[in-house]
């Protein structure tokens, strides 16, 4: 007995209703041309998956697969940038920093120290006493540190832009 007959006979014994359906029932057909492109479609999918797998294997140390590296590198780059800015800033302004000349003993004091001193001793002297005390320095040509008017004008002219920029930077309100 062949396979088909065997199955048919078995079904006949189990249910004559189902046997009648077997002759009538047809599975819905696939859309036209579906099988023509199916093999290529499946092979493309497989090749794509294999490629992704290989790529992942090769780039196993890709930073995108090590998310912790990204914040670390970001922080590192920020730190390096800041360090660079500081170094460039220092080098850029190095030439503009002049060493204080402490011959007269005043130039070595900071503005803060002068302010604190004056504030602490504001009642210590009368105006006349101060003027008297300063007279020697005011009258002495050396106290002008030998800066000529022409040099002052030249300096202001050269640094005009810097002053403007600083004014603009603080002009935030």
């Amino acid at each position: 007995m062949d396979r088909k007959t065997d199955i048919k006979k078995e079904l006949e014994n189990l249910s004559s209703v189902l046997l009648s359906f077997k002759e009538k029932d047809t599975t819905p057909l696939a859309t036209e041309g579906y099988f023509d492109g199916l093999a290529d479609q499946i092979i493309d999918t497989i090749q794509h998956q294999e490629f992704q797998k290989t790529k992942e294997g090769v780039l196993s140390f890709d930073i995108f697969h090590h998310p912790k590296l990204i914040p670390y590198l970001s922080r590192l780059s920020v730190a390096a940038t800041l360090a660079g800015i500081i170094i460039l800033g220092v080098l850029g302004y190095k030439d503009t920093i002049h060493e204080n000349i402490c011959h007269d003993g005043i130039a070595c004091l900071t503005q803060d120290e002068i302010y604190q001193y004056v504030h602490a001793n504001s009642n210590a002297f009368e105006v006349e006493e101060i003027q008297e005390g300063m007279k020697i320095f005011l009258e002495n040509d050396n106290t002008s540190m030998g800066i000529q008017t022409i040099e002052v004008i030249k300096y202001i002219d050269q640094n005009k832009n810097m002053l403007d920029t600083e004014d603009a930077a603080t002009d935030i309100f």
Binding site: T27, P28, A30, Y34, F35, L38, A39, I42, I43
Partner: peptide, 13 residues
Amino acid sequence: LSNYQQRLYYHVR
């Protein structure tokens, strides 16, 4: 694929 695609399609269908 050529040998089995139709048979398996109608099977899963």
